[in-house]
């Protein structure tokens, strides 16, 4: 990201990012208080929203020059997204949820090899005996593992995680983080993860405080 500026029209919030980059295999942690723009930063990186100024590049591709559909295609092929609220489809079983990226856009075609990869991935995450279960019949930790598997099934070059362990107990949290770290290490995948959890900051190569880029003022400091 280079000289990126972004503001919401509804309030005075602004983000100004002079320079921010993440290299292959690098793990970048983003921290900061609630409401200071962490999710907005992830949305800018993933192209879900467009910056007002500056440029965002992924390799040689300049994101703001892509059409909306091209951006979606790029996101699907090159990026994996993991959300805090898991966002699984309640009416799809574990395998179908993992394979969802292959069903929602014709740029990826669903082959027998992909199905096998989904099963292997699920099994490696301890979900081998729960492939036909629906999200409502899974624990919190299991649901987040499905969500992680869905992000990894496309073998992305960049993994973008928005507080993926916020709703998990320490055991499940560590399990999920181990899975993500292992994948990134094996596939040389870059990781950008937003987190509030101070205990996991030592897992990242670099930690960026978003307050350095935001005009956000913490109300507690005024008091």
């Amino acid at each position: 990201m280079d000289q990126v500026g972004f503001a919401y029209s509804r309030d005075s919030f602004k983000l100004n990012i002079p320079k921010l980059s993440v290299g292959k295999s690098e793990k970048l942690g983003i921290t900061g208080p609630s409401g200071c723009g962490k999710t907005t930063l992830l949305n800018l990186i993933s192209g879900i929203i467009k910056q007002d100024s500056g440029s965002i590049r992924m390799g040689d591709i300049e994101l703001n020059k892509l059409s909306s559909q091209d951006m979606k295609d790029l996101r699907l092929v090159k990026m994996g997204l993991i959300f805090q609220q898991f966002e699984l489809l309640e009416y799809l079983n574990v395998v179908d949820n993992i394979l969802l990226p292959f069903r929602i856009n014709p740029i990826l075609s669903l082959e027998a090899e992909t199905r096998e990869r989904a099963r292997t991935l699920a099994t490696s995450m301890g979900l081998g005996d729960k492939l036909k279960r629906f999200p409502a019949n899974l624990s919190q930790g299991e649901r987040q593992r499905v969500s992680v598997a869905r992000a990894l099934i496309t073998q992305p070059e960049l993994l973008i995680c928005d507080e993926p362990t916020a709703n998990l107990d320490p055991v499940n949290r560590d399990h999920i983080l181990d899975i993500i770290a292992s994948y990134c290490g094996e596939n040389k995948t870059a990781l950008v993860m937003v987190t509030h959890d101070q205990e996991i900051l030592n897992r990242f190569d670099r930690v960026q405080d978003i307050l350095e880029f935001s005009n956000y003022k913490d109300p507690r400091r005024h008091e």
Partner: peptide, 16 residues
């Protein structure tokens, strides 16, 4: 809405 937003964020095509 949440489900539709998820699909769009992941990269669902325009008409999907």
């Amino acid at each position: 809405k949440a489900e539709i937003t998820t699909m769009k964020h992941i990269g669902a095509s325009r008409n999907f």
